[in-house]
């Protein structure tokens, strides 16, 4: 915890010094920019592929991503029921560049969701996994920089997201009926 606080102070301590960096971090930290980018990348993947088979594989990845995100969310909610860690701004002086969220700081829901996206994508498309992983990483750093999370919260969140992605990746056979149904509905609507 001491190391966690020290690292937080180091990163958050550099906030409000360079206006451009602050603006960039405020863009990255909010609940909309990175999630929207991740969702758009995922939606684009739905259409990628020159053949029906290739598209089918990509569309299965999307169903896996959604499942992993829901699983990660569920794990975070369960953790919140048994453990509450106050936000950094509640216990010490911080350079706060964001609003004051009231839920538990650990594990970070934002990191759990972003790393669930990146984790599933990494298993199927390395390049997409790298892009989504980079976005998730920037999202995580921005959360510390802006004073809403300790580094350990994000590590825990990232771990929840990555493990969810791994478990979903290992449960492809069990998920197949769901994937087939989603793709069949998409084909019926001429969108798959």
């Amino acid at each position: 915890m001491v190391l966690d606080t020290a690292l937080f102070n180091l990163i958050n301590g550099s906030a409000t010094r360079v206006a451009v960096v602050d603006s960039l971090m405020r863009l990255l930290v909010n609940d909309y920019f990175v999630p929207t980018a991740l969702c758009l990348l995922t939606a684009a993947l739905w259409f990628a592929g020159s053949s029906k088979q290739e598209r089918g594989r990509n569309q299965r990845v999307i169903v896996s991503i959604i499942t992993a995100v829901l699983l990660a969310n569920l794990v975070v909610k369960l953790c919140n029921l048994v453990y509450f860690r106050p936000r950094p701004f509640s216990v010490q002086h911080v350079n706060l560049l964001f609003y004051r969220p009231s839920d538990s700081s650990l594990p970070a829901n934002s990191a759990a969701v972003a790393f669930a996206f990146a984790g599933v994508a990494w298993q199927r498309h390395r390049w997409l996994g790298v892009v989504m992983g980079a976005l998730a990483g920037l999202f995580a750093i921005a959360r510390i920089y802006c004073g809403v999370h300790y580094p350990l919260d994000l590590v825990a969140g990232g771990l929840v997201g990555s493990v969810s992605a791994y478990l979903v990746g290992k449960s492809q056979r069990a998920l197949e009926p769901l994937m087939a149904t989603v793709i069949a509905v998409g084909r019926r609507l001429y969108l798959a």
Binding site: N30, D31, Y32, T36, N73, P101
Partner: peptide, 22 residues
């Protein structure tokens, strides 16, 4: 992102609510 900073920097839809609106 350029003009709605008041809304962006207030607690809004997150996780499942965000996915619903999106």
């Amino acid at each position: 992102f350029g003009t709605r900073s008041e809304e962006i920097f207030s607690p809004g839809p997150a996780s499942s609510e965000f996915l619903f609106f999106w």
